[in-house]
């Protein structure tokens, strides 16, 4: 099964399960978790099911395309289900069968892994899923997002698509994967890796990036200030409700959190951030994520948690 078939099969499987196929987020993220479809939707009481490909950027993991398994740009397949279903492990295992893995023939393991994202103020408990020793997925029961304790709990399944594909195709290097008939992963991404690594590690203009971080952060603060000053007494019945709603722009605000996080990641790869500053930057992003989480919860509350009504 080639790379794109795996994506298609997973999409088909999770669509059949009842997930909204939301499509990738159009802003750079370090992992699928950062997308609003996960980090925001995990908050609050409303049920949610979604699946999407998450193109992910981790500038520090760049190896110029020389390392067979490490890249600064790669693909995750992200699934979130809230509340976490009771038979979630069985459902997950069936998705592996859907991409042609005969579970009888392999050693499947759920290996303890407590996940934490300090920048998102998010954490969860779960496992890495191993197939014959290869980690192919992260399996997490979220406990906290934007520093807010969750109830109900969201299940997050993150397939490392390249790992999964190397396992399925039995190749040693990501770049040897067949993406589509006649096209290898390397033909599509070897050069993007080389250029991405070079840019992140050697070329990126750190002054510009610091400036960008400041600007993005500033714009976020503007939006957050706006939210804090909104008319707290207003209700959907109020005459000026439409104007009041304009004071909680959580989605644009959260986009600036994503942008800040990505800029920080490049600065980090570039070695431009000292250890002391590093903690301060992470703290800043975490505070932004927390603020956005609160904005989101307020926003959904204002709407009356509309997704609850079908349940």
């Amino acid at each position: 099964m080639n790379f794109q078939q795996i994506i298609l099969k997973l999409t088909e499987y999770w669509a059949d399960y009842g997930c909204v196929i939301t499509q990738p987020t159009d802003i750079e993220v370090g992992a699928g978790t950062f997308a609003p479809a996960t980090i925001l939707r995990a908050l609050g009481p409303e049920p949610w099911k979604a699946a999407y490909v998450a193109p992910s950027r981790r500038p520090t993991d760049g190896r110029y395309g020389d390392n067979p398994n490490r890249m600064q740009f790669y693909y995750q397949y992200q699934v979130v289900v809230k509340p976490a279903p009771e038979d979630s492990q069985d459902i997950y295992l069936k998705s592996l069968e859907a991409i042609g893995i005969d579970l009888k023939a392999h050693d499947v393991r759920f290996v303890e892994d407590d996940w934490e994202s300090p920048t998102l103020g998010a954490s969860g408990l779960g496992w890495e899923v191993w197939l014959d020793g290869t980690e192919v997925s992260q399996y997490t029961y979220f406990q906290q997002c934007g520093s807010i304790a969750l109830d109900p709990i969201t299940l997050e399944l993150t397939y490392g698509l390249e790992r999964l594909a190397t396992f399925v195709q039995g190749v040693d290097s990501v770049f040897d994967l067949e993406w589509a008939p006649g096209f290898s992963y390397g033909e599509i991404h070897k050069e993007t890796e080389f250029q991405g690594s070079t840019y992140n590690f050697e070329v990126a203009d750190t002054e510009m990036l610091f400036e960008l971080f400041k600007l993005f952060n500033g714009e976020f603060e503007n939006l957050f200030e706006r939210f804090k000053k909104r008319d707290k007494e207003a209700t959907p019945e109020s005459e000026d409700w439409r104007d009041v709603k304009k004071d909680n722009l959580v989605y644009p605000a959260y986009e600036f959190v994503m942008k800040c996080s990505h800029v920080f990641n490049i600065l980090d790869a570039r070695g431009a951030i000292s250890v002391q500053e590093r903690a301060a930057y992470i703290g800043k992003i975490r505070n932004m994520a927390r603020a956005a989480a609160n904005m989101y919860l307020q926003h959904r509350k204002d709407l009356g948690f509309p997704l609850l009504k079908d349940n």
Partner: peptide, 30 residues
């Protein structure tokens, strides 16, 4: 964590275990 399954032949089971070995070899090699 993969037992020798009763409804598989000895050869088949041995083959599966070998597959698991090969998969793990790839991991340790990397």
């Amino acid at each position: 964590n993969r037992p020798q399954l009763k409804d598989e032949t000895v050869e088949r089971n041995a083959y599966y275990l070998q597959t698991i070995g090969v998969g793990n070899e790839r991991v340790i090699r990397a």
